[in-house]
């Protein structure tokens, strides 16, 4: 029991930081502690959470995916052009872009696997490629005026006090729950952890490492595409410069959420909390109204340092306690 608690400790720490932050904000700004603020947190950060879920799979498997921000940008431009210029029905455009993203991710995964290249380089190339292609498609910000967009942004569960659970937030929550099920309850999820624990050993245990690797990057790109759809719903436009640097926000969220950057350990829920902490800081800054938004970056940077230090400390303590004789009962 104590063991499983200690495994959860990074996530518990993230949850504690989030709650503490929320309480502090609420003490400073009495309006803060409202359902409305919470719902806005979910909506404003929906796309980032979706990307972070995919990133969690990649990082737990011992990899990294730098292409996700560009994939979001590409998706928004593609959707704007497809719906507004080429006359593709929005739902068909959604399916199309997800298929394209899946092929893109599968391609990166296959290159990483079969050419034995570091994920960092391959996805960096993917990042330039996707961003470049979106510039090629259009350099302008293109508004999306389709009925479905107006309808979807209108549609929401309404609560008292003006709080709304929007479609992007709903999609995001489904992705979080789906991601948790996939990672924690399926064979595929166990294989992802195993890859992060030891790639060689996973192969020697008879797991199809190639298939798992390709699937992981496919999943990450598909979720980035879905994040792009959500982003375009949120902004009702497509722009090739949107979501620049989002891959780094996602990585930061995953690490703050307790996932080890070297792979093998982590939880989807932690990444969700990691994004929420970043969102909380943003919200605080907008409540303040005087602070520059760069303070969000500074706070995120400090938090990252703190969490990495905390992880190393817990790892160190865990290793030390492991020295104690473990149970052999002949």
């Amino acid at each position: 029991m104590i063991r499983s608690l200690s495994r959860l400790s990074p996530v518990l720490a993230t949850a504690a930081v989030f709650l503490a932050g929320f309480v502090v904000c609420s003490l400073i700004y009495p309006n803060f502690a409202s359902l409305r603020v919470v719902m806005n947190l979910l909506t404003d950060n929906a796309f980032l959470v979706i990307v972070a879920v995919g990133m969690t799979f990649v990082i737990i498997s011992g990899g990294i995916d730098l292409s996700v921000g560009s994939v979001i940008g590409f998706t928004t431009v593609f959707l704007a052009l497809a719906i507004e210029r080429w006359g593709v029905p929005p739902l068909a455009a959604f399916v199309l872009i997800l298929v394209i993203c899946a092929a893109f991710g599968a391609g990166m995964g296959a290159i990483i696997q079969y050419f034995e290249l570091p994920p960092f380089i391959v996805t960096l190339a993917g990042m330039f490629l996707a961003r470049g292609v979106s510039f090629l498609l259009s350099t302008e910000s293109l508004p999306i005026t389709a009925d479905l967009y107006a309808h979807l942004s209108d549609h929401a569960f309404r609560f008292d006090g003006g709080a709304r659970l929007t479609v992007p937030a709903m999609i995001m929550l489904v992705v979080v729950v789906g991601g948790m099920v996939l990672l924690h309850l399926t064979r595929f999820g166990a294989n992802v952890y195993a890859l992060g624990g030891s790639r060689t050993a996973t192969g020697l245990m008879g797991i199809n490492v190639a298939r798992t690797t390709v699937l992981i990057y496919t999943l990450s790109s598909v979720l980035a595409g879905l994040a792009g759809i959500v982003f375009s719903l949120y902004t009702s436009s497509g722009y090739s410069l949107s979501a620049v640097g989002v891959e780094l926000d996602a990585i930061a969220a995953v690490v703050i959420g307790g996932t080890l950057l070297s792979g093998g350990y982590g939880f989807i829920f932690g990444s969700f909390l990691g994004v929420m902490i970043q969102g909380l800081i943003q919200t605080y800054i907008s409540f303040d109204g005087m602070l520059s938004s760069w303070w969000a970056k500074i706070a995120t940077g400090l938090l990252l340092f703190a969490f990495i230090a905390f992880q190393q400390l817990t790892l160190h303590l865990a290793r030390r306690s492991r020295r104690a004789p473990a149970g052999v009962h002949p």
């Binding site: 399926t186 064979r187 952890y193 195993a194 624990g197 060689t200 050993a201 245990m205 093998g264």
Partner: peptide, 28 residues
């Protein structure tokens, strides 16, 4: 050098790739 995944549970290591499942979910 033990060729298992050190971060997985003992049970997962014993059955990795052949875990008992129901509807695609591992029966923990």
């Amino acid at each position: 050098e033990v060729n298992l995944a050190p971060n997985l549970s003992v049970a997962q290591n014993l059955f990795l790739g052949r875990q008992p499942t129901r509807f695609g979910l591992v029966r923990e």
